[in-house]
């Protein structure tokens, strides 16, 4: 894991590091779904230079799903399409036609609370 010194993360990408050591390198533009990450990248703090964001209290599994959400949601923003609420797969029995058209972002029930807390933390 990169601890200090200049970033090895290329321009245009950022690396999210979970508390249990998983690293996710994603395109920076997708991470702006999170208000916190966006502000962080636009500030003059350390992260804006290293492009590495440590999230020590987020678990890798949760962070992975969050990153997937970053890539999932922009398709439904500003294009007039409906952004479906992320919903538990337990409810998938009642999938409406709209849902089936746009696709449902599934959240494993056992992670739902963690994901919710993390989303709130990241302001997304």
């Amino acid at each position: 894991m990169e601890q200090s010194g200049e970033s090895i993360v290329p321009e245009g990408l950022i690396r999210l590091v979970s508390g249990d050591g998983f690293q996710y390198t994603i395109e920076a533009q997708y991470a702006t779904v999170s208000g916190v990450i966006q502000t962080m990248m636009n500030s003059s703090f350390k992260e804006s230079r290293t492009r590495i964001v440590n999230l020590p209290h987020v678990k890798g599994r949760v962070l992975e799903r969050i990153c997937q959400y970053f890539y999932y949601i922009p398709r439904f923003r500003g294009g007039g399409g409906m952004a479906p609420f992320p919903r538990g797969s337990a409810d998938s029995g009642a999938v409406s036609s709209v849902d089936s058209f746009v696709g449902v972002f599934e959240i494993p029930p056992e992670l739902s609370i963690d994901i919710y807390v993390c989303a709130r933390y990241l302001d997304m």
Binding site: M40, S43, F45, K46, E47, S48
Partner: peptide, 9 residues
């Protein structure tokens, strides 16, 4: 002196 502070922290 912001550049060495971690925003996230």
């Amino acid at each position: 002196n912001t550049s060495n502070l971690s925003f996230e922290q």
